[in-house]
Structures are given as C-alpha cells and as structure tokens.
Design a protein around this nucleic acid. Structure first.
Lengths: 242, 242
DNA sequence: CCTACCGATCGGTAGG
DNA sequence: CCTACCGATCGGTAGG
C-alpha cells in the first residue's frame, strides 16, 4: 500500500541512480577537467581557495540536507533551507547536485555505507567462539549507535523517506540494506536452533528491526536510558534472558 | 531530535485543535444554522439534494486525504490531489476544512478514535479469567488489524506524519494515543511478574509497538502471512512461547 | 460546491 | 558559487 503499484511505477528518463559507486566524490557535477584546461600552470597543481574547500562545501550541503530531511521531511525541506544550512545562497546546492532527489540519494547512500562499515567492525570485535547471544548484542548495540548516536541523521532519513526515491534509486539502496540485514541472519538462525528465539528467524528479523528502528521516534539522548541499557532491554525482550 | 525544541515551537494564533470533541460532524465549517434561516418551511426539514450527501462528500474528502497522506506523505499530497480523489474541483475541500492541516488532524483523530474503540471491543471479548498471554494476543491481533486491515490508512498516517502537526494538535492526539497505550500496561506488567516478559514493561511496550508499527513498511496483504500468523510470531518473539 | 483568481514558494537554470 | 530569473505549483479565498 505504501509502495506504488508496479503498473504505475515508471522510471524517469535520465534517472540512473547517481553516485552508486562508492568511489571518491566526483567533484562538482562531474566537471573535473580543470587541470587540463588551457593556460593553467604545470607542475604540482596549486589549488585555488575555491577548490581547497570544495569538498567541505559539498559536505556541508550533505549534512545540512540530512538534518533537514530528518526534521522536516524530504518534501517539506526546501533546497533554500539546505543552502542556508550550508551557508550558501539559494541556487548553489545545484552546483553540487543535479537535483534535490539526487541529494536525498547521496544522504541515504552515505548513511548506509557508513552503517555497514560500522556493523562489520562491530562483528569483527566479537570473538569467534562467542555465544550467538553476544553476537546479537553487538548487532543491536551497533544498530542503536547508528540510529541514535551522535551525527545520526542519515539512517533515519533512509528509514522514513523511502517513498521519495524513484525505482532506480530504490534498487541502489536496497542492495546496501539487503547486505546489512543479511548479516543478522546466521545469528538469528543459531539462536532459533538453540531455542533462545522462538519466532521464525525471517519474521523475527523484521520485528526486531521494527522495534529498534522505532526508537528514533521516542528516544531522547537527554533521557535516563543509555544505549547499553536499551540494548540489554531489547536482548531480554527477544531472547527471554536478562 | 525529530521534535522541534520547545523554545522555537510556537502555537499559531488561531490554531486551537479542530474537532477535538467526538461529537457528530458539525457540517461545513461549523455553519449549521440552515434550519433557522428565514423563509424556510417548518415541520420535518426537507433536505435539499446538496444537504443529503453533504456528509458523504466530507467523508470522501477525509478518506481520499487519508489515502494520499499515507502514500505520498502530508507535504507531498496536494489539496488538489485530495479534491480530485473526492471527485471535486481544486478549491472545494476548503468548503469542508479550513486548512490542509485541519484535514490532517481530522484523519488522525478519526483513526485513533476508531482504533481505541476497536481495541476496547477486542479486550471485552477476552474472558475475565483468561491468561495474560491471551490478553496480549488480543491486543496484538487488534493492532495488526488497525494497521494492516482493510481501510487502514488512518493510523499509518498518524504514525508517520506526527511532525506535521502543530503543538496544539499534538496535544489533542496525544490524549488519544496515551489512552490507547495505557490499556497495554496491566497485561505487560502481569506477564513481567509471571516471568514471561523479561524486559521492563515500559520499555517493552515501546519496543513492541515499534515491532508492530513497522509492519506497515513491509507487510503485503498479498503475501503468505496472515494477521493471525503474524500475531502468533510476535507473541512467540516477545513471550518466548510458540 | 465551482470558477477564477491571488501571493508565495518551490526546484531549477543561465550567465557570469 | 552568486545574481537574477523562470515556469510550475501550491494553499487558500471571494463571489456566486
């Protein structure tokens, strides 16, 4: 119901998902041939001021967009709002991104790439002979960090603005979320076989993700709950052990 | 983070939450003195055609709004879209509602009122001497019905468009959601004391609601899962019993 | 409830 | 990256 029916969903003409490859930022709108322009001095390319912080300005746009998309929603956050948040004038975000939608995609893509990396690191920190429950604890704890930790605007945007993506973009993000979610399954299956998780692992994963993801709606970092405490509570709820 | 800070949150001048009282629909924009207008025949008020289906037109606006707010989001759904969905021309929804925002409020308020009523009926159907787990089953099953059953656009809108309400409106809706949620607590406490629910009941309620609410993101009525099946899985996950 | 209209705002662009 | 601009669309209203 919340996804448009396949029949009516068409892919825009030039809507190939931008920035799918996790390669270094391609510079403003792909225009990167400055060094080969005529009349430019050879040798070590002395960067202009405007080039020096070019990556920084782009960063500011992305971070401002993430924050505004999260607090106001994609449709309600104007590109002017985003420009102001990045210290720019109205039209300047379009120097870095070809459309508001492409900016949304980059926010989600960067968020998921970082979440996946953080999750992999968390799993690597768990001893190979650890109990499945400890592996689940690490996954839950990292997920809370990604959702609620400092600078955590990107993933909430991904969770709550999925419908604002077009089909090609959804496919790109799905690849990332699919890999992220798949890393939970061996642990959930092990717990299920050990009798510590009674629900079917596939359905359990959906419910567990829902329980955790929903915390962005009610968690306050100024409240009494710590992320470690929340993790322990979640573990108790799902595996019946305090 | 997703709620505006109290300092910057101001209540609009005339923004008293419309339609708080669950009394019968007050007719177009509160104008209901037609029967007392001069020159009108006495006796049984013979209704004009336009009056006959006045409630129906209003209904159509509300239901179209609920569907569009759900599928496109509040900001992205235009009042023109809603008018068209109700078979009207562009400006006509404003004959029934003073603003797009007031329409959102009515959708949420009607959704919650109906959900609360449905939940009460579900609880009334549980025998007084039933085990707490059976009470929880009834609550979960009803919640799935409210979220995923036929005509279930209203509650998802409430869940995902909270930020589009102003402060006065939030207060009005909070009263309804608070009562709805409170009905879960005795059951959760009983399960906790019996050792069937390991997490703290307050936190457990937040996680459980998250797990259930998130199902609107992935559930498909054309899939293999029935709402009864989902309920059994959720019960197994939370209370460790199949 | 429709017709016709209004000011405001929006995403996006040309040209420098 | 700014200035200045564009067409489109939006929520909302007057007047019937």
């Amino acid at each position: 119901m919340s996804k448009p029916s396949p029949a009516s969903a068409t892919v825009d003409a030039g809507a190939t998902a931008p920035g799918i490859s996790p390669s270094p930022p391609p510079g403003p709108r792909g225009r990167r041939s400055a060094a080969t322009l005529p009349g430019r001095p050879r040798g070590r390319p002395r960067k202009l001021d405007s080039e020096l912080d070019e990556g920084n300005r782009r960063r500011l746009v992305i971070e401002g967009a993430a924050r505004l998309f999260r607090t106001k929603g994609f449709a309600a956050a104007s590109t002017r709002d985003i420009a102001a948040a990045a210290g720019m004038r109205g039209g300047s975000p379009f120097y870095h991104f070809e459309s508001k939608n492409a900016l949304l995609y980059v926010v989600m893509q960067e968020g998921m790439a970082q979440a996946a990396q953080s999750q992999q690191a968390a799993l690597d920190r768990v001893p190979a002979d650890a109990a499945p429950r400890e592996r689940l604890r690490a996954l839950i704890r990292n997920h809370f960090e990604v959702l609620l930790g400092p600078g955590s605007d990107f993933i909430p945007v991904m969770l709550y603005e999925w419908r604002s993506l077009n089909d090609a973009q959804r496919e790109g993000i799905s690849e990332l979320t699919g890999a992220y979610e798949a890393q939970w399954m061996p642990t959930l299956r092990a717990l299920h076989e050990a009798g510590a998780l009674k629900a079917d692992p596939r359905t359990a994963r959906l419910f567990i993700f829902g329980a955790l993801n929903w915390s962005v709606q009610w968690f306050s970092p100024r409240g009494s709950q710590s992320l470690d405490g929340l993790t322990a509570q979640a573990l108790a709820l799902f595996t019946g052990e305090a």
